[in-house]
Design a protein around this nucleic acid. Structure first.
Lengths: 185, 185
DNA sequence: GTCTATATTGCGATAGAC
DNA sequence: GTCTATCGCAATATAGAC
């Protein structure tokens, strides 16, 4: 069994994703992690400390995921887009941690820390994409497409009307291909 | 001054966007709308009814915004992308209503209604984009780029490293241009 | 149509046993 | 390191005056 600390963060993520900030109470997190509220508060001394634990995990996973992108046999672009598709998450759980953090990215001081951590994920991802697509406009375009797919994990909107993610990936490859050669050679 | 009902929905949106579902309490909404809690509960008999009022407004604004897209002199694509940029919102407030609804799109029954309303916005937007870009893959790609920009309104991540939205729009026009002619003949 | 007052529940956090 | 018990406060919602 995972450490109590990790189980607490897992439960916190799940509740944030499934029920939003209103549902992620200390009671609910403790119950889902199968520890008592006192046990939870031993590891994270306040709700704010719990949120900061989530941001730290997000930074760690972002760094690790950027490494996976770079070492991925299909390349950073395909890795980024495929792991952005609802249901096709990053193997180390970055997607879940990202979506959970999004839920508490509000205008409060803690929310500002959340947004800073999310901005770090964006920067890590773009840096890895730029290694495959030197053209900064195209790299950003690819990232935005992936982020649009991310958003659909939240809205649950169907992947639209007869067009598959593979079609999308093929088209993006056509767009990137010539531009890449132009930029690199 | 706007009607009490509209002021309540405006306040609810603002609180959801700025403080998330935990901050959008009936007390806080009533205070921000400058009505008493009793006055609020006259117009919306419960918190759930308030949420449903938001979803109804989202559907209305989505329909109206799709009309603006179609009549926009610069075309649906430019309209969609420009109003997706953080700070450059839809003139009828669709962006705000969309982001507020996103905050309560959780796994609850109410959240399911939220996601259904959001999926409707996606469908309306795509339908308007397809009128300018008949190729469904390209139309979806443009929408996803816009959605990625939307997401940045939530994360507050900087519009990245030296690349402007105008650069992005120009590049998208290059990509769409030939494909559009090819598709339309 | 809008208000005050209040019942009731659930929250975050503390104290202290084991 | 994990638990139970409890305090103080804020939440939703109701009742009823104006």
């Amino acid at each position: 069994m995972a450490s109590a600390r990790d189980r607490v963060l897992d439960a916190y993520e799940t509740l944030l994703i499934e029920q939003g900030s209103a549902g992620a109470t200390l009671d609910a997190v403790a119950a889902a992690a199968e520890v008592s509220k006192g046990g939870l508060l031993y590891h994270f001394s306040s709700k704010d400390a719990l949120a900061k634990g989530l941001f730290e995990r997000l930074r760690e996973r972002s760094e690790a995921d950027a490494g996976l992108m770079r070492r991925s046999p299909e390349g950073p672009v395909a890795y980024y887009l495929l792991t952005s598709v609802p249901g096709n998450e990053s193997p180390i759980g970055l997607t879940r941690t990202y979506l959970a953090t999004l839920r508490i990215a509000d205008a409060s001081p803690t929310g500002a820390a959340a947004r800073a951590a999310l901005a770090g994920v964006d920067a890590d991802g773009l840096a890895a994409l730029v290694e495959e697509i030197p053209d900064p406009v195209l790299a950003w375009l690819v990232q935005l497409v992936g982020d649009g797919l991310y958003l659909r994990t939240l809205t649950g909107a169907p992947l639209t009307g007869g067009v598959s993610v593979d079609d999308l990936l093929d088209r993006l490859r056509q767009i990137i291909g010539p531009a890449r050669s132009a930029a690199t050679g």
